[in-house]
Write a protein that binds this DNA or RNA. Structure first.
Lengths: 223, 223
DNA sequence: TAGTGTGAACTCTTTCACAGCT
DNA sequence: AGCTGTGAAAGAGTTCACACTA
């Protein structure tokens, strides 16, 4: 028989859940579990069982009927899918409190990444050491090419005003995936993947729901 | 005629974009602009024009045909929808680098929030001052009730191992909306709204796309 | 004329429900 | 007996395209 192609195109919504599955599987493996059912994995990650099965089947996964999924095998398969079999370098630009938080976050190392470089423009910050790494001037980016292979992911933790320039610079040096915390919309070539986390937006979304509840409460029967 | 109900139920996907619109509108207002078209707003926020119009119409908004939307009016309307007409208090638990980054983020104040309290368990950290606020012991939460009105939003910036306990404590004290940065799934009553931002997951999602590109590149014509 | 508001088509995602395997 | 894998149904979200109007 011919090798079946595991899948073509994992749906984006599924990709978004893979890290959660991987995290749960790592936890299970640490506790010595060797197999897990879709319902249990669902429980651990806060989704539905059917969802887990659909997601995993889109990876071409093979669970065992009547038993479940092999924890190690599935974990490896997801890690492979995410491209984490090899440690991926991360460059963090902007070493304020946020940049420092990211730089010293041990979860990066345990989940497939290596902080390869810390960059900043502030001469007060450049040269200081964070979690064993010396902060370099932004201009050094070009000199770091060999540290950034396989292609690094860029993290922007600068003030909003600097974010676009930093993003352009990263892209110039070959970065194609950027995680930004700056509250601005980055204009970049379509080929660059950007994920934006905006703290204030997250809070505003929560505020919306809070507000809706307040309205609902006010409108309800009194007494 | 009777007052038309502006809407019933704004779609969740729309809610997720409102903060972006609000940010763009604030920028336009600062630059003295008084009206804006859906296409321009779309351009500024990185979505499509039709999307903007659908979103705004679900708020019961009224743009002017041939002209566009009134910047101030629309901005106020979105702020109202998000419940930001009154400053909403935020409690931050876990004053490590990340908690400090959040505490000193000026974007909170400019976007409808007030950092009402900083809490931590570490005696080394309790009593220190961050951005003009003294860090209090976690146990003080009960004593802060008056600071936390209207109902506060809780932010969890603790290590994963502490997150569930902190979340339970927040909920006990009336918090119904939580933003967590801890890489764990929180088990809370359904009535509590939780948004989880997991840095490593974000990077893994980017890594997935990076990896796909590498596969595609390797499979392509060479030369 | 420029630009909104919106039904209708389309696409993506989730959920259901059950056949089929171990 | 238990649990996966998956078509089919249902539900969300997005995009199209155009009538309408200031």
């Amino acid at each position: 028989m011919m090798a079946e192609s595991p899948r073509r195109g994992v749906p984006e919504a599924t990709v978004g859940r893979l890290p959660g599955y991987l995290r749960a599987l790592t936890g299970l493996a640490d506790r010595g579990r060797s197999s897990v059912s879709s319902d249990e994995l669902a429980e651990l990650t806060g989704v539905r069982g059917a969802q887990v099965r659909k997601d995993l089947s889109s990876l071409g996964s093979h669970g065992v009927r009547g038993v479940g999924y092999d924890v190690t095998r599935l974990s490896d398969q997801i890690a492979a899918e995410l491209g984490l079999l090899e440690e991926r370098p991360v460059v963090i630009v902007g070493i304020g409190n946020l940049g420092r938080a990211l730089a010293s976050y041990s979860g990066l190392a345990t989940r497939g990444f290596r902080v390869a470089a810390l960059l900043d423009v502030d001469p007060e910050v450049v040269g200081t050491e964070v979690d064993g790494l010396v902060v370099r001037p932004l201009g050094d980016l070009g000199a770091l090419a060999e540290l950034l292979s396989p292609v690094a992911v860029g993290v922007i933790a600068t003030p909003g005003a600097a974010a676009q320039d930093v993003a352009d610079l990263l892209v110039e040096h070959g970065v194609r995936s950027i995680l930004t915390f700056a509250p601005v919309v980055l204009r970049l070539p379509d080929a660059v993947h950007v994920r934006a986390v905006d703290l204030a937006s997250e809070l505003q979304i929560l505020a919306f729901h809070e507000h809706q509840r307040e309205l609902a409460g006010a409108g309800e029967d009194v007494g």
